[in-house]
């Protein structure tokens, strides 16, 4: 009997091994490997004509963060400014999509079941539509000869087309449009779970609407707010497609800078260092998110945003 159990145990172990070996090998080589080598690259010397020399070099970071005063080069804060501007644009995108989605999530959560499913489907459907097509739509709308300007001029509100495309505003509009479904799902998940009796209790105890909102509703939907914000912030920060189509050469974000380093300037170590800056920003945010969620979970079972979005 115990021998039979042991063979069963062995067989299970073999199955587990068989299940895990291919994905582990694949991800170790093609996911962890590339990440490791990118980190190494960010500390290497850029070669004169592209490529790298395998010598330690800390000025890739110095050029961004401020200690790059060498014989050949003075420190130029332009790279750090681009980084900050990207953070600002991504944060604006997050804020706008949050303001846009919050009431909508409330609206949907009050619907009868059947209609609710339809509307959720309608809101998430753009996720299945190609990103480039959705950005292209806004190029058509915002161009000087585009739909928006034509409409305003047709109504006689303006005489000359407004310069919207190739500004930060255009980039933010495009990114909000593209990433708004990511904000909706986690927000909806946490608003759906709201316990209405707590809101009633708050009102019964004499709180007015504004107090109820800020003291009860907002804290209870915080995991959804933070989760949605992070899921929108991450792709916005490193985005270079939106900025290059809607921002042109005028709105350079860190994503464009990285793209240039890899595909035209061919300074890969510097590009890798810029990439590490983006990674660092993302990691800081994730740690913050984990802190908020674990704190919430200690109080109640909070929603797992990543899973909500994937499902």
């Amino acid at each position: 009997m115990s021998k039979a159990r042991r063979t069963l145990e062995n067989r299970r172990r073999l199955t587990l091994f068989g299940l895990l070996l291919p994905p582990s090998a694949f991800l170790a080589i093609f996911f962890l490997g590339p990440l490791a080598i990118m980190i190494v690259y960010s500390w290497l010397t850029p070669g004169l004509y592209g490529g790298v020399e395998w010598k330690f070099f800390h000025l890739n970071y110095g050029r961004i963060l401020g200690w790059a005063d060498t014989k050949y080069e003075r420190f130029d804060p332009v790279y750090f400014e681009i980084f900050l501007r990207s953070v600002k644009l991504a944060a604006t995108t997050v804020l706008l999509s949050l303001i846009l989605c919050y009431p909508v999530a409330f609206w949907v959560s009050r619907m009868p079941e059947k209609r609710k499913n339809l509307v959720i489907f309608l809101i998430t459907l753009p996720f299945f539509i190609s990103l480039i097509v959705r950005l292209f739509a806004w190029v058509l709308i915002l161009r000087p000869t585009g739909f928006f300007n034509q409409a305003l001029m047709g109504l006689g509100l303006i005489d000359e087309p407004l310069e919207i495309i190739f500004t930060g505003t255009a980039v933010v509009i495009g990114m909000v449009y593209v990433f708004v479904p990511f904000m909706f799902l986690p927000l909806y998940a946490s608003i759906e779970k709201l316990d209405l009796s707590l809101i009633e209790a708050s009102q019964d105890l004499g709180a007015n609407r504004i107090q109820t909102f800020f003291r009860v509703i907002l804290p209870m939907t915080l995991p959804g707010i933070v989760g949605g914000s992070i899921i929108v912030f991450i792709p916005s920060l490193g985005n270079f497609i939106g900025p290059s189509l809607l921002g042109g050469a005028k709105v350079v974000m860190i994503g464009n800078l990285i793209e240039q380093q890899f595909l035209s300037a061919r300074n890969w170590p510097f590009g890798a260092a810029l990439g590490m800056m983006v990674m660092a920003a993302v990691l800081v945010l994730l740690l913050y998110y984990i802190r908020i969620v674990t704190r919430e979970e200690r109080q109640a079972d909070g929603p797992n945003v990543a899973e909500e979005v994937a499902a």
Binding site: E259, V278, V282, A310
Partner: peptide, 30 residues
């Protein structure tokens, strides 16, 4: 049941939260 379970969970979540551009340049270098 195995010891590295949480490691695998984290590993499978990583590509999802990684900005595309980072994975793109890391793979290009590699």
């Amino acid at each position: 049941r195995f010891r590295l379970k949480n490691f695998y969970r984290a590993l499978m979540f990583m590509p999802m939260i990684m900005p595309d551009i980072i994975l793109g340049i890391a793979l290009l270098i590699f």
